[in-house]
Design a protein around this nucleic acid. Structure first.
Length: 938
RNA sequence: GGGCGGAUAGCUCAGUGGGAGAGCGCCGCCCUUACAAGGCGGUGGCCGUAGGUUCGAAUCCUACUUCGCCCACCA
């Protein structure tokens, strides 16, 4: 009868790989566009080919998988599109570093084509690592569809999109001030610049007026840029300078004379009220220059080196060198004023952390304003919903003040820009297929643009390029728009906004109906995980476990600082215990609340691992008692019963757990439907542990015994009771497994397979139906009866714990209650209390004081008395009851005060007043009972 | 400079107008044959501060304190 094949502790390392393999080999996760069911599609945010799974991926993908599995089980045509991103700049830098380390060569040493061959090799070698990791987490992606941002289809989509936007005038080439990273040696978009404040200096420079011995004073944080100054600006209303507007100054260190102009951007309150204008190296100044007709000079080149037209002495210097030289030279000429310490705003490259140089350069841009308008409207009118909604504001703020998007990058790894320049006539040819000749003059002397596109350009097309666009494919028709996009809020501008713009523009529909922004996963101290800090946790280390030594070894491979290592040792002194993919998934879901970040704590994961184990053991118990169970017969009987039969044939506990099961089914459905993942996880956690295990399983034990003697029930009833209990136990467990499966697929599948089930079910839990609430099994009266029985049982346990009675020692308890209805309820279901409290119960209406007993009052009028013979400590008991009375007094005072308030009685809703009155009566009765008990103890 | 979010039990956090909750921790008792990764019982809170609205505020409004995040061209 006992099933010894199941170990006491659940071992995920054996179970998880096995089911993974079976699910994949049976093709459960493949979706067909032609299927008749309602589509539900999610596109996986494509991870970088360079990467390995991090906690953010684990969280986002767990959420996606939970939704997909839930919908798949709910008969939707659920499709999860996998793919990977070429991650232009990130990958190129990694391969460049590798090349430098191994061979001491730069990419220029090996040449463009050979270098690209190496990147492709790199991609082949490391690209699949993350997919393997995702499989280990149990993610049900439709792997047959897997795509890459630089595969043939995606490349065709990129070309098509570029050409169309160009033809529509929404992509253009221009000579503009752009953000240049001298280290990555490429232009970057505004989004890739981090604005930081750093300690620096504010220098005052004196510019001599032409034809006068006076100076005008300007202030700057970058004195070297004065070499490119083409003007000095003052505020038009500034009386101090009014007479100087139109005059000229002699620019020190150069032989140039530059004009003084008036422009509104100058703040007369700041510094001297006069500003040097360097249109070639500052965005503000560039715009001022445009307004005032000042030319833009480039005195810093792409390497960050000073060039002509700066004076010869400075040419060849770096920006930093030039700064020192300029300051020294000005000081020599007594043209340097005050120098004060100053906090300077500075742009740093998101990738290399190098200071960004604003430079004039020829680049390609997307004209964003016309694209943004429909994307704004679609979020405003709810065609695409944001969850949590607070991100709408962020999105709107950025979108309504959107700048044109610089999309060309001076890199090699990426989509080459499909534009050709004619050597003969200088015309630009932009074409879908590589052209042989200039479209304007017909010359064959054409060269393709050397640059590639920003990696986010192909990402912006991803929701439809993966479905076959620009073809009108069946996939596109079925799975676009996606049901939901699950992503982190830090790429709302980089990605979400651009997918919205491109989707609406090219497909004419939003790319997804809902955007769910995941929390950020921080470490247990609430700090952002980063390699530099050494606090990074790899999800698979949580799954498989890792010793401190292993963690340190991994850290060494990524080149960790001493401080980071120390931090790592402190955080993971005990290593990371193996928890299994299910526990990691469940933990992440349980911690996911909208709009709140996650503090990843080992202890909590351990807690949820324990939950998985609890579920495992509850199942062991069920299986030990179900060897002879006919599941098919029970299912037929249950389906056949009228509500009356349910009431007469099943015990109170049976009906209670079935009713509670309906409630949790409903709660989970609601929670998942509104993306409240922690609610769903917690509802199931509570139901399984504290209702099913703590109460139902315990109460089922006597009914499962195959009694032969000592039972009053007739023989055939004994068998039937056991059979029905097995049935309810099995039904509840099986339903719970289905409810939990989208969150913890492995352990639920493993148990489900072993459970006796009605015939005709699918071969795996992964492809069964998700439970629906059965209204006819919800039983309010049974739930409140059960709640009362539980309260009495807890009260007896409480008394026995207070007086140190061991749990194994049975006690006699007496309960007294006047209400005859309740009394007969207790009579009928006394077994619940007796079993739960290990007590023999006597139920009466009233009685005399029992000497040497402890008493508890339940609600207002139920007395529970446990005779304690020699154990009772009268003083302690008096103190205990006095404390109860004090509590009651406080309540009575609180409620009385409310009811004495005429305004409350007059203005509060009648039902609220009535409730308070009833409460007062209850508390007063309770106090009377307690007082009697106290008196009797004298 | 602008915007957003948080402040509730020792810790991590639910709770958005009518009797302060969960998980973990802590204390006590128990290896009761599903589970010690467990069972039973318990302790613990001027709901950040100050005002206001209301019959009634953890919950709504205002200000403040404080922590965090995002955006921004003041030289």
């Amino acid at each position: 009868m006992s099933d010894t094949s199941l170990p006491k502790q659940y071992d995920p390392s054996e179970v998880e790989p096995r089911w993974l393999q079976i699910w994949l080999s049976r093709g459960y996760f493949h979706a067909d566009a032609a299927a008749p069911s309602v589509p539900y599609a999610i596109t996986l945010p494509p991870p970088n080919v360079t990467g390995s799974l991090h906690m953010g991926h684990a969280l986002g993908s767990t959420i996606q998988d939970t939704l997909l599995r839930w919908k798949r089980m709910s008969s939707y045509n659920a499709m999860w599109m996998p793919g990977k991103d070429h991650a232009g700049i990130a990958t190129q830098m990694l391969v460049e570093r590798d090349l430098q380390r191994r061979e001491g060569k730069s990419r220029h040493d090996v040449g463009r084509q050979a270098f690209l061959d190496r990147v492709w090799q790199w991609k082949e070698r490391y690209g699949d690592r993350i997919s393997e990791q995702m499989k280990l987490m149990g993610f049900s992606l439709d792997w047959d569809r897997e795509r890459f941002t630089m595969d043939e289809g995606a490349s065709r989509a990129v070309r098509e999109a570029f050409v169309r936007l160009y033809e529509e005038g929404l992509i253009y080439r221009a000579h503009r001030l752009i953000n240049w990273c001298t280290d990555c040696f490429t232009a970057v978009s505004d989004l890739e610049v981090n604005n930081v404040e750093e300690a620096g200096y504010l220098w005052e420079l004196h510019y001599p007026l032409v034809d006068s011995d006076q100076h005008i004073v300007v202030a700057t944080t970058r004195p070297e840029t004065m070499l490119g100054d083409t003007g000095v600006a003052v505020h038009p209303d500034d009386e101090r300078y009014a007479h100087l507007v139109g005059k000229k100054v002699r620019l020190p260190l150069t032989d140039r004379e530059i004009p003084i102009v008036a422009d509104l951007f100058v703040d007369p309150e700041f510094g001297s009220g006069a500003v040097k204008v360097t249109p070639g190296h500052d965005l503000n100044d560039f715009e001022c220059g445009q307004r005032c007709g000042l030319p833009a000079l480039s005195v810093i080149d792409l390497r960050g080196v000073i060039i002509d037209p700066a004076p010869e002495t400075y040419r060849g210097m770096t920006v930093t060198e030039a700064r020192e030289a300029v300051v020294a030279d000005l000081e020599k000429q007594r043209l340097l004023g005050e120098v004060v310490k100053y906090t300077v705003p500075r742009g740093r490259c998101d990738r290399s952390n190098t200071v960004i140089e604003p430079l004039l350069s020829d680049q390609w841009f997307v004209k964003t304003e016309p694209l943004a308008a429909p994307a704004i409207a679609a979020v405003k009118d709810g065609t695409t919903r944001f969850i949590p909604e607070l991100w709408i504001k962020t999105y709107m703020h950025w979108m309504t003040d959107i700048k044109d998007w610089c999309i060309s990058r001076q890199l090699w790894w990426g989509h080459r820009i499909p534009a050709w320049y004619c050597d003969q006539c200088n015309a630009i040819t932009v074409a879908r297929d590589d052209p042989q000749a200039c479209h304007s003059c017909g010359s064959d002397q054409i060269r393709q643009d050397e640059d590639v596109l920003d990696t986010w350009f192909s990402s912006a097309l991803w929701p439809f390029s993966t479905l076959g666009w620009p073809d009108q494919s069946a996939d596109l028709a079925t799975f676009y728009p996606n049901a939901v996009m699950i992503t982190a809020p830090d790429i709302i501008f980089f990605w979400v906004a651009r997918m919205m713009m491109m989707g609406l523009h090219f497909v004419g529909k939003v790319p997804f109906r809902v955007v769910y922004f995941t929390p950020i996963v921080n470490d247990e101290n609430g700090e952002k995980m980063s390699k530099v800090k050494g606090n990074v946790i790899d999800p698979l280390e949580l799954v498989h476990g890792a010793t401190l030594e292993q963690l340190l070894q991994r850290a060494d491979e990524t080149g960790l600082t001493k401080a980071a290592k120390k931090n790592l040792k402190k955080l993971f002194a005990k290593g990371i215990p193996a928890s299994g993919a299910d526990a990691v998934r469940f933990s992440l879901l349980a911690m996911t609340l909208p709009g709140r970040n996650i503090r990843l704590s080992m202890e909590r994961i351990e807690g949820y691992r324990n939950f998985i184990n609890k579920l495992w053991n509850a199942s062991r118990f069920a299986l030990m008692n179900m060897g002879d169970f006919d599941a098919r017969r029970f299912a037929e009987i249950l389906a056949d019963w009228s509500p009356d039969q349910v009431r007469t044939e099943l015990t109170l506990a049976d009906r209670w757990i079935l009713s509670r099961l309906q409630r949790v089914t409903h709660a989970v459905d609601q929670a998942l439907d509104s993306f409240r993942f922690s609610d769903a996880a917690n509802a199931l956690y509570h139901f399984v542990w504290h209702e099913f295990c703590d109460w139902y399983i315990e109460l089922s034990k006597p009914n499962l015994q195959r009694q032969t003697s000592g039972s009053q029930a007739p023989r055939h009833m004994q068998g039937r009771r056991r059979f029905y209990t097995q049935g309810v136990l099995g039904t509840v467990l099986e339903t719970v497994l289905r409810l939990l499966h989208p969150m913890i697929p492995f352990v639920t599948e493993e148990i489900w397979q072993r459970l006796p089930k009605p015939s005709g079910l699918p071969a795996a839990l992964a492809v069964t139906f998700y439970p629906q609430k059965k209204v006819e099994l919800v039983d309010e009266a049974t739930e409140s009866d059960m709640a009362l029985l539980q309260e009495v049982a807890v009260a007896i346990r409480n008394l026995r714990a207070t007086y140190g009675l061991p749990p194994t020692q049975p006690v006699d308890a007496e309960m007294r209650l006047v209400d005859s209805g309740k009394r007969s309820m207790f009579e009928s279901h006394r077994a619940v209390v007796e079993h739960a409290a290990r007590a023999t119960l006597v139920i009466t209406e009233s009685g005399d004081h029992i000497p040497r007993s402890a008493k508890s009052i339940i609600g207002s009028d139920i007395e529970v008395i446990v005779p304690l013979a020699g154990l009772i400590d009268v003083d302690a008991e008096r103190t205990r009851i006095a404390k109860e009375i004090a509590k009651t007094d406080k309540e009575i005072a609180f409620i009385s005060k409310k009811l004495d308030n005429e305004k409350f009685v007059a203005r509060a809703p009648a039902d609220v007043v009535e409730k308070e009155r009833a409460r007062l009566t209850d508390e007063e009765t309770r106090k009377a009972r307690l007082t009697e008990a106290l008196e009797a103890l004298k």
